[in-house]
Simulated scan of single mutants.
Amino acid sequence: MAEPLDRLREQIDDRADEDGEFYVACADTDRRPTPLAGRRFPSESAAREAADRAATYRALLRESDPALPEYRLAVYETPRDAPTMVSTREPAAGRRSNGLPRSSRSVTLSGEREREWLRMDNAPLVHVRHDGEPLDDDAVARQLDAKL
Rank of each mutant, 00 (worst) to 15 (best):
A92F: 01
Y57C: 03
A54P: 07
D138T: 09
A51S: 11
L118V: 15
G20Q: 09
S87Q: 14
A93G: 14
R96E: 07
D17T: 03
E18G: 13
Y71F: 01
S104T: 10
I12E: 12
P4Q: 10
S103G: 09
D137S: 08
L109M: 11
G132P: 07
P134D: 02
D131S: 15
S104K: 14
R105W: 02
R31G: 10
S104D: 11
L68E: 12
P66E: 12
S43H: 02
D137F: 03
A16P: 04
W117I: 06
E18V: 09
A37M: 06
P83F: 02
T88V: 09
D65N: 07
F41V: 07
R48I: 00
Y76F: 09
N122M: 03
D28H: 11
R129I: 01
E77C: 04
A51G: 09
P134A: 04
G38F: 00
L125D: 11
S45G: 09
R15A: 05
L118F: 14
W117F: 10
R129G: 10
V128F: 05
R95G: 13
V128S: 01
C26Q: 07
D65Q: 11
A92E: 08
Y57V: 06
P101H: 05
A141E: 03
P101F: 03
A55W: 06
R95I: 05
S97I: 06
L8E: 03
